[in-house]
Design a protein around this nucleic acid. Sequence first.
RNA 1: GCUGGUGUAGCUCAAUGGUAGAGCAGCCGCCUUGUAAGCGGCUGGUUAUGGGUUCGAUUCCCUUCACCAGCUCCA
Length: 639
Amino acid sequence: MEIKITFPDGEGKTYKAGITPREIAEGIGPRLAREALAAQIDGRFIDLDTPITEDATIQLLTFDSLKGRDIFRHSSSHIMAQAVLRLFPGAQLAIGPAIEDGFYYDIDFPKPISPEDLPRIEEEMEKIVKENLNFKREELSREEAIQLFEKQGNKYKVELVRELPEGDKISIYKQGEFFDLCRGPHIPSTKYLKAFKLTGLAGAYWRGDERREMLTRIYGASFTDAKELKKHLTLIEEAKKRDHRKLGKELDLFSFHQEGPGFPFFHPKGTILFQELIEFCRKELAKRGYMEIKTPIILNEELWHRSGHWDHYRENMYFTKIDERDYAVKPMNCPGGLLIYKSRIHSYREFPLKVAEFGLVHRHEKSGVLHGLFRVRNFTQDDAHVFCLPEQLEEEIQKLVELILDFYKVFGFEDILIEISTRPESSIGSDEMWEKATSALKHTLEKMKIDFKLNPGAGAFYGPKIDFHIRDCLKRTWQCATIQVDFSMPERFDLNYIGRDGLEHRPVMIHRAIFGSLERFLGILIEHYAGNFPLWLAPVQAAILPIGENHAQWANEIKATLDEAGLRTEIDLAQEKINRKIRNAEIMKIPYMLIIGDREVETRTASIRRHGSGDMGNKSIPEIISFMKKEIEEKKISS
RNA sequence: GCUGGUGUAGCUCAAUGGUAGAGCAGCCGCCUUGUAAGCGGCUGGUUAUGGGUUCGAUUCCCUUCACCAGCUCCA
């Protein structure tokens, strides 16, 4: 019998039924035959040696495709698991998926292993690769599978099999003496694994549940080509150099101390960055009709009962006593802002009423989650609350989305992940309110043709939200901006406005932050720019470097003039060679260096050097001020 | 919070069951300097913390704290 196989380009060809993807690849060319890892048949993924029995469209998957990589890395994790079982016979395998750039396997070891064991596992993997073992698929019934894994003494696999749908065929993959529960497909043989490295060891809960067993997770990276692996590892090394915790120390921006874990200390230079961000934000908000308020950090506990925080957020709050009464340190700014709203009567004519606050909030985070400026216990939100009429809601959401994207463009962020988070278990308000709020968010993004991911159950306790996530240097993503629609707080606080009809009505409230947390955003910026801040943000914008003592006077004059012009400068009067001074300024990533020697004193100029690019020749002081100011004005992003 | 790891001078890192050393930084001198490290000297540490083992602990063991990786949780 013959079957028709259609290729991705639309071309078709007839083959004998039972032909395998491998044979098809061989027919096309030696290179494809060599590189093909698995195949996609009518949307289903199969092994290279699975016979095809009916008409189908085929796509041969190589490492160049996303799915091909996934399969390759998933197979890598099987090979690692095999190595682990050879070396640690009592180990129980849990799950081992592919991830970006690599794979991991969660394993329950009889005795804990240490990073020193990784090279041994790698060696064993090398052996398995050399053994050139074929991945073989076998199908069995649920009962057989359960028996098999019970016999092996693997409670995790037994649990997984039990949860697979009744009646489904269960597949396992074997290579050599090793077998594992797996949907597949896999690469044909272990020899395909040309380049890999085990990159890390960490704990991970079984099924991601902190109440369950803690397993050992081994991370690895794998590629078809040693050069690619090397490139990947180098990239990670490079990325680590821009870690904001490292740069924060090197550039003298901020520090952390045992005396206050998770509470950042901003040094003078870090404070400049912080203030510049606020300044930028204030100017932009002023253009858009925002007002700014300031509310207290500590407020009576009763307020937090009223807001719902006591019931839904207490775990994250700090409490204190004043004059025998109970108070709480604010974890959010909204309740305080609502007291201001309620301090007078409001008219619909004021709407949308936009009230911003750079509010310092404190949240009790579990000790293990603290992470530089990305995850702290006190941070400053660029918060705002927009009070509006229900019919204004979507328009206001849209304006906020635009505002956020505009802001991010200024900093050069392109790769932003957007999520909508829906009602969590612990929450307040009626289903109807949640439904209305969530659909307003969804509808707005859809209208704007913005892609988003759904994150069910991850909303704030008072309302659903759109979150904007930005990646750090190691590709971990961090939530920054947020837009949250809230029908509940206005009700709880009995907020009113007088409508056109002269009667009291309930406003809708949007909570939003653009940076999210100034601390986190600053951390992201440090990594994004690798410490080479655009001129407008740079803590020191120009270093003035006199060559010798004779040049100090002109250098000081220049400094005074630049300072007067509002530029941030430093002067290096040390008894040092000019090369040393330049090196120091380069290391501190100061955008401009003004070198002052005999020539400059004589011509009343400075020799300009741009950080990272070099000598720009001589310029007069007014010229320097004017081009620097222009660069600041434009918020130019340094290349 | 959990699992594992780490903690030595301001920073980066050595060393040892017999009470610690380098480079950089800092300070003091010399050099008088032209686009990424001039030279010499000096200072600096109850080896995170508390306890235990030992004749002796910075080293071995335990506690606490902090940090790192990941998990869980979240801006």
